[in-house]
Amino acid sequence: MIDTDCIFCKIIRGDIPCAKIFETPSVLAFLDIAPVRPGHALVIPKAHHPALWDLPDEDGRDLLAALKIVGRAVVQATGAGGCNVVMNNGAPAGQLVAHAHFHVIPRVRDDGLELWPGTPYADPQAMSRLAEAIRSRI
């Protein structure tokens, strides 16, 4: 399925150019046009699915296999010591394009990028209650 208004679907169709780095029949990977660091890549399914949980299992397997290949290549090509693999799901989480996609961001020590701060639960019972609420929905 393709969404005619989706910028990633337009890239997949070839309507918008990209710096393609990897492609299979079901996955496309290309460099981000506004990278956090040089080598920042996007790995996307060719079928339009808004978020991770909308992906059929087969597409998810293909996406993960491509992510491993692309991540390894980005780290090697940039000389990075590692990478962050990030997926934002939903606008409140920072997803700007409603087409499932992973960011592969190469990292080097002391590059100035910060991860989000962790905050312990103030009440251990609150953590237990939330864990139960989540388990009940699985």
Rank of each mutant, 00 (worst) to 15 (best):
V108T: 13
P117N: 13
K46C: 01
E23I: 06
V85Y: 15
P124C: 06
V86Q: 07
G94D: 11
P124T: 11
C9A: 09
F30G: 00
H40D: 12
A47R: 15
E58N: 03
D62E: 15
I12N: 12
L130H: 11
I2E: 15
P92R: 11
A122E: 15
A98H: 14
T4Q: 14
R109K: 15
A133L: 14
K46L: 02
P38F: 08
D32G: 02
R13L: 07
S26D: 14
R107T: 07
R107E: 10
R13W: 01
G71V: 06
D59E: 15
Y121P: 00
I134F: 14
K68S: 10
P124L: 09
I105G: 03
W116S: 10
R135S: 05
I134H: 03
L63G: 01
A126I: 00
P38T: 09
C18P: 00
P92L: 09
G81N: 06
L64N: 08
A93G: 06
L96P: 01
P45M: 08
D57W: 05
R61Y: 06
A91I: 10
K68P: 00
R13P: 00
A122D: 14
P124W: 05
I33G: 04
V70T: 02
P117F: 01
R107W: 12
R129I: 03
A29P: 04
M1D: 11
L63N: 08
R61F: 05
M1L: 08
V75Q: 13
D59A: 12
C83I: 00
A91C: 00
P56F: 08
L130A: 08
I2A: 12
V108K: 14
D62L: 01
I134Q: 09
G14H: 03
H103E: 11
